[in-house]
Design a protein around this nucleic acid. Structure first.
Lengths: 415, 415
DNA sequence: CCCATTATTTTCAATGGTTGAAAAATTAGA
DNA sequence: TCTAATTTTTCAACCATTGAAAATAATGGG
């Protein structure tokens, strides 16, 4: 910590502690909150009163236990008090999704945009703001928690020496925030693969399948990307480029990559590389490989040798990359997204070629490779989860209690 | 955070804030501490009084500024109040080093031990405790801050399902703590490569060369190992094996490794692999390759082709590994330790073969590869730094103030 | 030599937070 | 109706930071 702590910080932390307990453990009484958090009954009373004043928590009625004593009054999260808006910007579409704090987002609205993949910042900000204002109506009593914008492509952080590639998060966030005059709220600009990884990690945790402290995510659809989650938080790296493992080398003398190097992972597991290896490169149009992918799926089902060989080749490269991930960051769970999730049955033999020898050396290390459960909407779900986590981590951002009432509306970038 | 915050936590955090400022910015007055930390003058007065009561800070006299006004009374860290002891356990030796808080450790005392590399825990604990009690005399008024034991080999954390390999940190820490009856203090058991990385990162920061948030360390001497430092802290991974990158694959079809896989980094950059490739494998005795290494150094100086080729081969593999590190965790600084530091001039061409194409794609990313400044004592210096950081992060562990006075003496493992 | 000025440090009441014990509330069972 | 049991609230106490005022200790000028 670099800033001094005071009683307000204590209050903030304990409010978050109580709110998270209520969110995680369903409707529960104050006593259970006290037992679960380590706080004393008196403190829980005061903290819950604060959360109720902010509209984040409400009493749902008395529990009918049949036991003696004063009945416990159950507390519940008010899901619709705070609304998180997620935006996914791909090369061709802007998709908007909103959700309350309940964790079950509604449907997504998709709009076409005509900005280039790295087009002018102002044009992109216009398009995003228009999509948001169109899709998210203002409602009374609803606090707009956060607008999380997931970009397909590198997102760099607040550095003076911009690498020139990718989106400058603070800049784009500020541009969009300016254009949301009516419903101003904090704006985050993040990478979509990071958000997809977050979604998958939350899904694993929600399913009771503890993903552990370090989770790696690899996906291949429009491009190859990945993300690293360490202790439940995304690892950004020095330039916000962590997890961009499309161009990690998996062999010393491999095919030439468009990036100039050789043997990049992209040259093995990208959609184009797999289609080419399967002899289906001709079927894929520049921006629509749907037909070719469908044909690949059919040939895999019918065990066509060339299709199988293409996925074996990809699997071996992916296995090497996974082995690097495990050795480097000691992840105990690798989640595959995009087409890799669909292809997993055919990739696994190739992956095992790499992983089994290591497993023989460290027999009891339970590293699991699993397919992601989300489809193309993974990034949206992850962005919703990120916004929700922000509110749960600092309830004082919602007005109504004694503390500060949601003032900061500037764009920020750190999730 | 999972435990509630109270006024004691506020006090702890602000004490650490003040102490760190005094430690980092040399002798300075209370006003400067207030300006640097964001605390108010009144708070600084109270906090400094607490630190003085604990013996961690003292007034060094008035500053002779010649300016008008009440003269500032300079505060200084008391270096000898807290003593950190570091132990490095290699396959053959136990080395002990102690240091105060000043940052300039004294000489190291080395003892031979006759435990196997993964010998019985009790025997190793006996040897370590004996070395410590022999090397570190008790002194009045000196608080033993922490005993940090850096083990050459994998160190696993508190998990029920022990992988069987490596040292179980809590167990060994408890065993050693039990044997230090006279001078009980908290014991940490950590991996030596992690500590070496920490030492190098501290050295870079101390030299004014900001290493950034993510630093990777790779070394090769008795074995190939590495470490990852994220935001100044060691990344352990799910099983405490992060950074063990001796067995990450750098190519799809490489030489067979003793671990059972093929193409591991070890098969390219280990001391034995380099000596073999240079045609010097016969000179190396099983446990002493000193003569062979000296001969390799001579041949490199005289540009003997086979020696140069061996290091080019190693450099290319190392470049691929570095490229993987950069792509995966986005480190902006790679530090090479062990023999790699000595060999760097001859490794660099091979490394550049891998890194330059990527640099062409991301021209302004300033990723630096640099040799470590520490020799074999790197782990000891890092362990000292880790112990020092612990005290600076929680001064209430030192008795004397109002808060708790250094009670917990059990073994722990998390650095 | 004395006094105004200036800058640092300390003191002190006020505020806000958690805590522990006691009191109040509310129901089941005798 | 009364007692026991359990949850919730109230209240005095304590501790930490804060802001303003007071104390401290030098310099520079008359």
């Amino acid at each position: 910590m670099n800033i001094p702590a005071d009683s307000a910080a204590v209050r903030r932390g304990n409010l978050a502690l109580v709110l998270r307990h209520i969110a995680d453990h369903g409707p529960c009484a104050r006593t259970e909150v006290a037992a679960g958090t380590g706080l004393v009954h008196a403190s829980v009373t005061a903290l819950v009163a604060d959360l109720v004043a902010r509209g984040l928590v409400e009493e749902v009625g008395a529990a009918v236990t049949g036991a003696r004593g004063r009945p416990r009054r159950l507390l519940r999260l008010v899901p619709e008090r705070v609304r998180t808006t997620a935006v996914h910007v791909t090369w061709e579409h802007i998709t908007v999704m909103t959700a309350g704090l309940a964790g079950s987002p509604g449907g997504a609205r998709q709009l076409a945009h005509h900005q280039g993949p790295f087009g002018p910042r102002e044009g992109m900000a216009d398009a995003i703001a228009a999509a948001v204002t169109e899709s998210v109506p203002a409602a009374p009593g609803v606090h707009h928690g956060r607008l999380v914008i997931a970009m397909a492509g590198p997102v760099t952080d607040a550095r003076a020496d911009d690498p020139g590639r990718g989106w400058h998060a603070p800049e784009l966030a500020a541009l969009v925030a300016d254009r949301l005059s009516g419903q101003s709220c904090p704006v985050d600009v993040v990478n979509d693969a990071n958000m997809a990884a977050l979604a998958e990690q939350h899904a694993l945790a929600a399913a009771g399948d503890d993903p552990g402290g370090t989770v790696a995510y690899v996906k291949s659809d429009a491009g190859v990307a990945g993300a690293l989650i360490i202790n439940g938080r995304i690892h950004h790296g020095s330039y916000g480029l962590a997890g961009e493992l499309g161009h990690i080398p998996v062999t010393l003398d491999g095919p030439a990559c468009r990036c100039g190097a050789t043997g990049c992972l992209t040259t093995y597991i990208s959609t184009r590389a797999v289609l080419d290896a399967a002899g289906l490169g001709d079927l894929a149009a520049p921006h629509d490989s749907g037909a070719a992918l469908a044909e690949l799926g059919r040939r895999l089902q019918s065990a066509e040798p060339r299709a199988l060989a293409a996925l074996d080749r990809a699997g071996r490269a992916l296995g090497a990359a996974i082995q690097s991930i495990i050795g480097m960051v000691d992840a105990e769970r690798i989640v595959l997204g995009g087409h890799l999730a669909e292809w997993l049955p055919w990739l696994l033999p190739g992956i095992k070629v790499r992983m089994d020898p290591r497993r023989a050396a460290f027999p009891t290390l339970p590293v699991a490779v699993s397919p992601g459960v989300f489809g193309p909407d993974a990034a949206l779900h992850g962005a919703i989860a990120a916004g929700r986590a922000r509110i749960l981590a600092d309830p004082t951002a919602v007005p109504g209690g004694r503390g500060s009432g949601g003032a900061s509306c500037a764009g920020s970038a750190g999730i």
